[in-house]
C-alpha cells in the first residue's frame, strides 16, 4: 500500500469536512496524499466560489455553529503542512468551462481520471 488517494465528489459539508480531515492528518503524518476533485465538490475550489457548503444533517449544522475548522482551511493545511496534492478533474473543468488559472492556488493542476486511478493503483482510495 502506497499513498492515500481521496476522491471528493459530494458538495455537502460533512463529506468535504471528513475528506479534508483525512487528507490533512494523513499528510502531516508522512503519507503521500492526493485529492481528486469532481462533481459537486469541484466548484468550491474555483476562484470566487463560496467556501460554505450546505449541511446534509444535524452534525453539519452543529459544526457550523461551533468552532470547527472549516473544510477549506483544513485542505489548505493539508497542502501547506503535509504537502498534499489537490487535483482538479479535467472533465469537470471542461464541463464548467474553467481554465487552470481559474482554480484556487491550493489546486496543483488539472488531472484526468485515468491518470489518477493509475497512480492510485497501489494506494488506498477513499471516496467522499
Amino acid at each position: 500500500m502506497s499513498g492515500m488517494y481521496i476522491i471528493c465528489l459530494s458538495g455537502e459539508r460533512e463529506k468535504l469536512q471528513f475528506a479534508a480531515m483525512a487528507a490533512s492528518v494523513a499528510a502531516v503524518s508522512g503519507t503521500d496524499v492526493h485529492i481528486f476533485l469532481s462533481m459537486n465538490a469541484f466548484p468550491y475550489f474555483v476562484k470566487g466560489h463560496s467556501k460554505e457548503a450546505p449541511a446534509e444533517g444535524k452534525l453539519g449544522e452543529v459544526m457550523a455553529e461551533r468552532k470547527v475548522p472549516p473544510f477549506y482551511q483544513i485542505f489548505e493545511q493539508a497542502v501547506e503542512l503535509g504537502d498534499a496534492k489537490i487535483w482538479a478533474c479535467s472533465m469537470a473543468m471542461d464541463v464548467l468551462g474553467v481554465k487552470e488559472d481559474g482554480m484556487e492556488e491550493i489546486v496543483a493542476g488539472p488531472l484526468g481520471l485515468t491518470k489518477f486511478l493509475s497512480d492510485a493503483e497501489n494506494g488506498q482510495i477513499l471516496t467522499f
Binding site: M21, S24, V25, V28, R66, K67, V68, P69, I74, Q77, E80, L81
Partner: peptide, 18 residues
C-alpha cells in the same frame, strides 16, 4: 482551546515547523 479536531494538531504542527 475551543477548537476541534484536527485544529489543535494543525496548530501544533504549524508552530513546530518554526
Amino acid at each position: 482551546r475551543g477548537s476541534f479536531c484536527p485544529g489543535p494538531l494543525m496548530e501544533l504542527i504549524s508552530n513546530m515547523k518554526m
